[in-house]
Each structure stands twice: as structure tokens, then as C-alpha cells.
Design a binder for these strands. Structure first.
Lengths: 210, 210, 210, 210
DNA sequence: TATGAATGAGAGTTCATTCAT
DNA sequence: CATGAATGAACTCTCATTCAT
């Protein structure tokens, strides 16, 4: 029977993760010190070490709990009854709104993770698993469209999916870093147009969606 | 007339940059020590500091000399007399072959640079400038195609360019890290097909390029 | 009348000492943590601090209650009516059997205590008091033998006693640490022979004991 | 070709060992901090780490270079042409004078080493090897005396040697800690008398050596 | 000029002790 | 009374940078 409720413990854990994320977003993982995190969160270093055995584990947990959930999240938000094309569109929109308003910090977190990729194999694998998960889902959507006859018969589902994910991550990086000339709205439009032009070639004359 | 010829000095400088790059690619910037670099290159730390005032400057120089040259390189390799579409295709091919055989290490260098983005504003600006340069050139190609009537009239040149560059960088990251399911050849084909379908909507029946 | 019986309190105290001793024997005093002790004993750190004000006090108590009792114990076990020589022999035998079967852990405890000697004056004094107590008793036995004419007249009681105790402690250390070539039985025999040869020089031919 | 002479490097190394020894003697290994050592020696922590990879290595080196040389030292100082009995006497005298005037700090070093015995297997093995070395030499002296007929035929060489070494170490500990009632001179006399009475039983009347 | 030993601030982590529950 | 989460000073070790030789 724990002295402190499980809920308390969990909220504390989240507070640490919040503080850590905030600090990491500011100066990256390597330059962030454990003291920074403790100070930001308003607790002592010792407290932090009751919840995570090493600084690295905090990063890994962040990656697992706040970054790698992407694929399943996307699945949940789109798998209602809608056409594959609508689902794809929704995915793109979810991505854009997540980046812009919903979870802008998650974008920066991805940046932090990429930064650790060379020095920490676990981070690398985490990112790769996330990539795999996203690919898989998007490819399944494309394949579905091919099967229903909505999409061109020779569409390369995996390649398209890989392109979308790579593009999304590339955009995320530049956006997270405040690059000028990254106009999410315009890029969304153009990307969807390209996708549509490829997947649904105009048998008859169709005007592109906005 | 300097005691040591300018040529000698420059070759030494390049040796340092080579050693540094090699080390950075291996463990990232933060974890690489100045001793690592000196050891790898076979010179003393002191020597190193005669050429670069700080460790950070080495990184910055690498970024400037080996990463930011991208735009002008692309320009040089494509601005012969060819159609905008041929140029775009060439750009994609150059990218793929650079990643795969020509300068695979440059891909990893980009990864290193992204990692430093959060902690070093200069690196961030370097990447953004590179982005801007690439965008500008690619957008100009698109605009040219629109003007010549090769491409659809309402094509959003900037958005398409931004998409291509973001995609390229996204692919570079995943590729540099050895992610499975990143098949450059298939992605190249699909991307070109999408691009063509968008820019050159089939007035008549055309088969996609390989 | 205390809420908790004095007996309960005492048994708890002993449980703590037991746990502490076990942990100390394993990794020494400095490396043993208070948590180690609490975990080993199955109680909380807080509980521990209700019985002992500091970690150091546990060590000191162990020293006092389980190490410094040596002299009086020896006294009790030998002061029956027997000749001084028999008493000395008994002392040696008690020592050997204590080391080997009775209280082998006490030997290791002595080792722990010696380790703390440099950093803790109280431990040092405890060991010295113990030394003094043992010396005093053994010397009294020798003196007694001299008075009764059993032992050579010019025997240096204090020196012999100091030799015996130093020897015993030296043996204890090496034995507790599992040193090869420490054969207790052979050493006992040889030591007694030397002692006898010195204290009871053969007026006539006598064969050595054991 | 080293920039700094090998001699310089070695003297620096010794300076570190000296400082470390001094600090260890004062507060033991565990409580001594690396800063203590650096401060005592007048150099920076960093310098220290150029010569020894860890704090523990300093201790180990001290053990190896300043403690484990005992056996060979003893050998060198006694193996001239003299009778086994003279050699044994010399050993005892060397021990006493080393303790008292020659290398009193080595005695304390032994104490430090004993303290680390429980937490560091390498230290333990070092002490055991030293023990073995001493035993071996002393036992060989005894055996020699038996062979030449100087000593009693049934003398147990190993046991006697083990007794002498254990006794010496026991005495060293108590002496190093400033225990009252440890009179080296009297103990030396009594010990030699006991040894002689045992090894050279008076066939004819002999008076004991001083 | 080149060298690499030296510096020392600062990193991650531990743990004796306290105290709200 | 018991608990065990929290504290934070102190520890060992690293590494960018300097500078005597």
C-alpha cells in the first residue's frame, strides 16, 4: 500500500517530463543540465532521480511517450468510415494543425531527438520505429485506395508513404526552427494537389481541390 | 611572404576539417572532443587552435564550406541549356546520387548540423540560409516552366520548391541514419511522378519517366 | 509505561544492528548505505533513525556491543579453577573456535572497524580499549603463572600479552579475508609450542603439546 | 619523442602518489577526495587525471609500489651470508626500525589498505599476495635452519612464518594508530625469545639473547 | 610554430538526513 | 510511531582552452 497515491506519483513524473521537455526544447539535450530541469520544475535534483535513473532515460521516455505515439494517434483520428483519399487529406490536415496550434512543442521535440540520433542508438531506433509505424499506416491507406479503384492501379504505396513522412518531418524541422518561407498553408495545398494528381489522375477534366 | 606557404596552411586547415567531420559524423558534435579531432588528424590540440579559435568555429566552418555550398552547386550542375523539367529531374537525380555515392557523409553532416540547431543560433541561420538558397533556385526553375508554358499556369513555385527541399532533407536524415524502408530509387520515381502529374497535367497520354 | 514494551523496542534495535552488520560485512562501512540496511532488515529508513541518530552511531554501537565484549567474555570463559597455562591454552582455543565456527562474522566486523579507524576517532578508541582489556587479562594470567612458579621468573607479562593479542588480530584479518596459507590449526599448535617453550623452559625433557 | 622528459613525468607521478598517500593516511581512502589530493600536492584535479585514470588506481598503485615491495626488500636486506637465525633476527629488527623510524607512514598505509579490503577485491588480493611473499621467504629461512641442524627438526616452517607475519601486521596496525601499551622494544625481545626457545631448544644451558 | 601538460569550472549522480503525511 | 519522498551538498570525472617550452 503506497504511502502516496499512484496518481500523485504519476503527476509528479509528468511534471518532471514537462520540465525536461521545456528545457530540452530550449537548449537541446546535451546542453540542458539536470539542474536546469530541476530548477525549471521547482524540485530538487534528488527528486528527479527517484523517478528516472539517468538523464538519458528522461529523454528516452519523452521520445516514447510524446513522440512515438504519432502513428497510433493518426490511426485513431482517421479510421472512421471515410474514403482513403479523405483519410489522407485528414492526415495532412492533422499534421498541419498539430504543428501550428495543437502540439507545436512536439515538433521541437522531434528536433531534439534528431540531434541525439548520432550519439544514442536507442533514440535512433525510436525514431526509426516511429517512421516505420507512420509509413505502414499511410501505405495501408494508399493500398486501400488502389484496391477500391479510387487510386491509380500502379501507385507505389510504400514510396508514397515514405515520401509523405519524410516530407512531414522535413517540414517539421524547418518550421520548428522558425525558417522564413515555410508557409504551411501553401505547402499543404500544393502537396495535396501533387498527391491527388498522382493518385487520382484526371480521367475526365477535374479541377484540383484547394 | 609568409614563412609557411599559403597552400600549406590551407591544406592543414582542410586536414583539420576532415578530421573534425569524420569525428562529428561518428558521435555528433557535442560528444566529440577536441582531443578526438586532434588524434584522428594526427596533430596536436594546440595546432588545431591556431586555425580555429573555438571548437564551435570548426563546426560552423564545416557548415559553411561543406553544406551551404549546396545551392550554388546545384545551379552549376544544371544551368546548361535544358528545359526546366529536365533541370528539375536532374536536381532530384543529383540529390539521390549525392546521398548514395557521391557525398554520403555530407548527409550525415546535415544531421549533425540539425542537432546543433537548438543550441547554436549561427548553425540555425546557416541551415536556414541554405534552405532559402535551394528554395530560390528550385522556385526559379518552376517559374521558368510556367512562363514557357511547360508547367501548369497556377503552379505555386515557392510551395513546390519548399516541398522538394523539405522532402530531400527529411529523406537525408532517415537515410543517413540507416532507416529500413527508405528505398531511394522507388522514392525518386514516385516523387518525380507526383511532380510531373502536378506540373504537367496530361493533356495527352504520357507515360511517367522511370 | 511505554506504549511499546521495552522488549519490543530492544528486539527492533537488535534487528537493525543485525541488518547493519550484515551489510557492513559485505561492503564495508563507507560503501554501505542507510537504504541498504533498511532494505536488508525490511524496515524504513525513518524507523532506523528512531533508534540511531546517525549512520555512524550504528557502527559505534556494533563496535561496543559486539566487539568490545571480547575481554570480559574471555574472562568469564576461563576464570574457573585451572592453572594459568591451562587458561592461556583455553584462550587460544576459544579464539580459534570463535574465528572458525562460533562467531566468524565478528572477525569480519573487526576488519570493518579497522577500516574506520582512520576516519573516526571513536572507533579508534574503541579498538584501543578492547586491546587494553585483552592485554590486561592475558598479562594477569602470565603474572599469575610467574608468581606460582609455573612460568619462568623473568617473563615479560605485558609484552607476551601484547604479542598474543596482536597476533590474534593479525590472524583474524587475514582469515576474514580468506587468505590462502592461513592454517588455523597449525598456527595454533606452533603458537602454543612457542609460548610454552618460552614460559615453561624444559627443566627435564618434555614433549610438546598437540 | 616526448616534449617533457620521462624523468619529469615520473617525478610528477611520484608527487601525486606522495600527496595521495599523505591524504589517505590522514582520513582514509573513502573520505579523501580527489580535490584533497590535488590541493595537498598543489596541482589541479585535471593534472591528476592525466596520470591516473581513477582515484582507485592511485590507491592500487600505492599498494603495489609502496607496500607490496616488502618481501623483496626483506630478501635483499638479509640474504648475505649469515645463519638463518641471524637472518630471522634481522628481519624482526628491520621490521621494528621500519615501523619506528624508517617508514612509519608505510605502516599507516597498510592500515588504509586493510580498510579497503572489503570493498575492493584488487586491494584484497594485493594484501594476500604480499602476505604470501613474506611467508614464503620467512618459511624458507626456517627450513634452511632445520636443514643445517640449527633449528629443531620438527619445526613447522609455514606456521611459524604465518605467525610472524600476522604478528607483525597486527603490531603495525595498533602501532600506527598510536595505541598505548605497544612497546616495540619489549615486544621484539619477547618475540625473539619465544622464537628462539621454540626453534633452538636449549640442549645445553644458553642464556636468551636480548 | 608546434606541442601537449595543465587548468578548473561544471557535468551527472549519490546518499545521509529530515519531515509531512 | 512508521513511512519513504524529498533535499541538496558533495563527490568523481571530463574537456575546451591556455601557454610555457
Amino acid at each position: 500500500m503506497p504511502k502516496v497515491t499512484e496518481g500523485h506519483r504519476e503527476s509528479r513524473r509528468q511534471a518532471i517530463l514537462d520540465a525536461a521537455q521545456e528545457v530540452f526544447l530550449g537548449k537541446g539535450y546535451q546542453l540542458a543540465t539536470v539542474d536546469d530541469i530541476a530548477t525549471k520544475g521547482g524540485f530538487s535534483v534528488g527528486a528527479l532521480y527517484r523517478y528516472f535513473p539517468t538523464k538519458s532515460d528522461i529523454m528516452l521516455t519523452l521520445l516514447e511517450e510524446r513522440l512515438s505515439r504519432g502513428p497510433e494517434l493518426l490511426r485513431r483520428l482517421t479510421s472512421d468510415r471515410e474514403s482513403p483519399w479523405e483519410s489522407l487529406t485528414r492526415c495532412v490536415d492533422i499534421f498541419v494543425s498539430a504543428l501550428r496550434v495543437r502540439h507545436p512543442s512536439t515538433g521541437r521535440l522531434l528536433l531534439v531527438a534528431w540531434g541525439e540520433t548520432l550519439q544514442d542508438g536507442t533514440v535512433r531506433q525510436g525514431l526509426q520505429r516511429r517512421f516505420g509505424g507512420l509509413i505502414e499506416y499511410l501505405a495501408s491507406l494508399v493500398r486501400q485506395g488502389v484496391e477500391t479503384g479510387d487510386f491509380r492501379r500502379d501507385a507505389d504505396a510504400t514510396a508514397v508513404a515514405a515520401i509523405l513522412v519524410s516530407l512531414a518531418d522535413g517540414v517539421t524541422l524547418y518550421w520548428s526552427v522558425g525558417t522564413p518561407d515555410v508557409y504551411l498553408h501553401d505547402m499543404r495545398t500544393a502537396a495535396l494537389q501533387m498527391l491527388k494528381a498522382y493518385l487520382k489522375p484526371p480521367a475526365a477534366g477535374e479541377e484540383p481541390s484547394t
